[in-house]
Design a protein around this nucleic acid. Sequence first.
DNA 1: TTTATTTCTTTACGCGCGTAAATTTTATAA
DNA 2: TTATAAAATTTACGCGCGTAAAGAAATAAA
Lengths: 343, 343
Amino acid sequence: MTGTKIKNMEEFASVSGISRPTLSKFFNNPDSVRASTRKRIEAALEQYDYQPNLYAVNQNRRLTKNIGVVVPYLADPFFAKIARTIEEYIIETGFRPVLLGSHGSPAMEIANLDNLRSIKPAGVLLAPLGRASDQETLEAFCEEVPTVLFDANIDTIGEAFVGSNNEQSIGLIVDYLCRTGEAPCFFEMRSPTNPNAFKRRSAYIAAMERLGHTPHLIQAEGEGWEFEEIGFREGMRALSDRNLTTNTILCSNDRLAIGVLSAAFETGLKVGIGEDCDLRIAGHDDHPFSKYTCPTLTTVSQDYEAIAKKSASLLLERIETEKAADSRREALFDGRLIMRSSA
Amino acid sequence: MTGTKIKNMEEFASVSGISRPTLSKFFNNPDSVRASTRKRIEAALEQYDYQPNLYAVNQNRRLTKNIGVVVPYLADPFFAKIARTIEEYIIETGFRPVLLGSHGSPAMEIANLDNLRSIKPAGVLLAPLGRASDQETLEAFCEEVPTVLFDANIDTIGEAFVGSNNEQSIGLIVDYLCRTGEAPCFFEMRSPTNPNAFKRRSAYIAAMERLGHTPHLIQAEGEGWEFEEIGFREGMRALSDRNLTTNTILCSNDRLAIGVLSAAFETGLKVGIGEDCDLRIAGHDDHPFSKYTCPTLTTVSQDYEAIAKKSASLLLERIETEKAADSRREALFDGRLIMRSSA
DNA sequence: TTTATTTCTTTACGCGCGTAAATTTTATAA
DNA sequence: TTATAAAATTTACGCGCGTAAAGAAATAAA
């Protein structure tokens, strides 16, 4: 890009000595032209500053190269991280990711999808809000646009679902906690938005029963996405009531755990695995901040990489075959125990 | 939207009984048509499912309604939050925000701007990486596209800069710390990427000298955006060396403070303002997590709202007047002291 | 070299909309 | 009511590109 600025493909055709239809083919897929002409075009691109007008291109193509990525909450580092990983895979395959966060609002989730519809995406990767989502509208959207769900499953929606194996991961940490101390109670929200929460609840109950313990749920009141706040507030209540049947609390996710940790600190309870500790607290997700809590949080990590890669590749596959699969696929990945100091 | 799907404006013109040029005017600006015809069009829109093809629209308009928002790191809740606030203002004014994160990489920062160029944005709001940014390329970009910087200033770049008044905010917390205990040392990175860090350093020195104290810097080695990690590692070193001249540490930002807090916990030092405490730690930014650290982090909050609103409105003003201002403007907002338990 | 095949060029049309110019209709003021 | 201004309609062209068809050129196979 040293030389003059070229204003359209016609002009680039004349300066490069390649016909416009051939250039058009090249920009759609550089491998669709002969190697020698590809070289010539690439040489010309070095000399002249030209790139096809995105709007003109997308107006005429049936399908754009856009892929929507919608997550419930971009300010949550967990989603920021997984969205980022997904973005990388999409870019690698030559598509353009368009990242949107719904800020916990079902209305904004729909608005985001509407927005996406107007850019005619080849497909979208959606981590739905869950229970709060407007399922009918979501379903209608998925009829129009190839969609793969990740993180949170809604059974009837989308071509496929990719997420974590909560059964396995919760089993893992319940096993660990029982083996190293008292059997845990389960701290969660009474009416969670996220479907994973329900899976984790029953996984906890199943694991406890399998090990011959009585499950015990602590259900926090509260709505919305301020999990730390809810964890703190309801954690304070649970801890000050002193009606805990165990010294071990397994939280449904790390953000709740961070709140409970904060409540324990406030209450003067010492959290950890030492003899002198009053309480063990564990979480789930390996939230980026769980490494820096005091004490550091024992948790189970989701396989971000695998989830990102799988959901992206399932979507791309669907896009390339151009037809819906006969049946909805589900891919679940195992969690990994992250032993730190809190439990 | 009950009825049939309309495929283009021509068709919508015939079913609605309004001419296409008028419809075109309406979609560009609903107020540019007579109130009565506006009503008729809006009534028709209720009946028929039509929205103008975004690509065809943007191909023909000189300027799109897109506004790029580029931040250094979307996984950082601080940036996620401010980006979100900016998004809101942009949407309110009828523009389309396009959110991009650079993941700490100068190359990706440039890639993001290139990407934006291809969608012909009306303007962009850029929080640059800072020292690491490729300044020449940034400058070239700003020549082409109206750009307002926020958060991090680079003197010669962009139409305007909107950020925090580090002088004031650091002065505020140094004052507070000196008034309530020992004068603080300053924990920072030796070679920070972010220009605010430099401002904060000199603001700290100035404030200390003003109060008749000798400034003392602790400069952490390390590169990149893993601030908690750096804060922890170098915090461990500083605390175990026991060569602190004071029991009070002011950190250049909250993420470093979170790391130092974690190091203090690890070292067995009690952090807080009580008689029985060994250490006071304060931060800067009011990071969303600083409310849930153990102990909760005393810090100074940036005026997110004001920064978001001002930078958005400066950009829109610039876009509407269609010409560069004679001089580069700078708007700085004061910080607010957030007293919590750590100092 | 001749033939078959692939690739490129030329020509031409269409996508959905912005927008200009001339004309007609509608609203407002006198 | 009539004159005047404002808004809508009709007609027409252009934006930059995708893409189809037919023929020319380059390559590969015989």
